[in-house]
């Protein structure tokens, strides 16, 4: 549905986006992660045709955004950063305007407005001016605008930014639900959202893609992935380190021990070996946990500038 190839955007000599290629098919929700200033918004602005790329191509459902922008734009629903909306319009007026701009008329227009009002829970503020709305409602109004023409491609720039935890939860559910029928790409720097809503995630840093995979694949890149944390009376670090699959053993607070796998292949059998050891030694287990690896650790490790990474070592 959405394919971008080798996208480049240079501002002066600085390359804000430097050769990004990705594609999103119907039924996929792609999380677009990266630190601030990594080029997420710039990439999304190029996808939606707001800014022209310095190089590369953007194809939306077979239409080239550069050569033939209007049919391409028709297929996209876009929630810009900060959820911009005309402050002096009412929610109803604004959605009506969006519907008109999308060429909806008559019955279809009425139905489309009713549908997005329902979807984004805007019933109670329908006749309020956007200016007077809370941030959460303003966000959802702008999201409703992006959904009004039931687009095949949804581009959402930080859709949960500034929402409270309940609203975040609602929006994530909505994104996941929409993702079953559409191609969705959304940017965020909240990592838990990747698990909550994405089928796939891309991490971008300084304009380049540095990681691309399912949330589980990304987590597996963590050094923690596959490690076993054990808290048991009588546990002996030396015995644990002696297991065939074990690498190093790290003591944690309160007497817990963390056993890291020797390598990626060993990770699968480590937990079983630890349990067998515990049982044979008759240690009294208080806690036993197999670690999945944490996204924020992966994120930090691959997006820290080299100098900071050196210093952290």
């Amino acid at each position: 549905m959405l394919t971008i190839e080798n996208l480049v955007k240079a501002f002066g000599t600085k390359r804000a986006v430097d050769g990004v290629s990705l594609s999103v098919e119907r039924g996929e929700v792609l999380g677009f992660l990266g630190p601030n200033g990594a080029g997420k918004s710039t990439t999304m602005r190029m996808i939606t045709g707001f800014i022209p790329p310095t190089g590369g191509t953007v194809m939306i459902g077979g239409h080239d955004m550069l050569a033939d922008p209007i049919p391409a734009k028709r297929l996209i629903g876009y929630l810009p950063e900060n959820a911009a909306a005309y402050p002096d319009m009412t929610v109803r007026g604004f959605l009506g305007f969006a519907a008109d701009m999308r060429g909806l008329a008559g019955d279809a227009r009425t139905r489309a407005i009713a549908r997005v009002v329902d979807l984004c829970f805007l019933d109670s503020v329908l006749h309020q001016e956007i200016d007077t709305l809370s941030k959460g409602y303003r966000h959802r109004t702008c999201l409703a605008q992006a959904l009004i023409h039931d687009p095949d491609v949804l581009v959402l720039d930080e859709p949960t930014d500034g929402l409270d935890p309940n609203q975040k939860h609602e929006v994530r559910n909505l994104i996941r639900e929409l993702g079953t029928r559409k191609a969705v790409i959304f940017s965020t720097h909240i990592l838990e959202e990747v698990d909550a809503a994405c089928t796939r995630a891309i991490i971008i840093d300084r304009g380049r893609i540095v990681a691309n995979g399912t949330p589980a694949e990304l987590r597996a890149m963590s050094g923690l992935a596959g490690a076993v944390t054990l808290k048991a009376r009588g546990a002996d670090a030396a015995r644990l380190a002696g297991l065939p699959a074990a690498g190093s053993v790290e003591p944690l607070e309160e007497g817990a021990l963390r056993v890291y796998p020797k390598d990626k292949d060993a990770a699968a059998s480590l937990a079983r070996q630890v349990i067998e050891l515990v049982v044979s030694q008759d240690w009294k287990i208080e806690q036993l946990r197999s670690e999945e690896g944490q996204l924020d650790e992966v994120f930090r490790r691959i997006t820290l500038p080299d100098t900071v990474r050196e210093a952290a070592r």
Binding site: I70, P80, M101
Partner: peptide, 14 residues
């Protein structure tokens, strides 16, 4: 200033 330029120019219009 309001950022609506982005909204307007990503609508299917020239």
């Amino acid at each position: 200033r309001a950022g609506t330029l982005e909204l307007l120019l990503t609508m299917p219009i020239a």
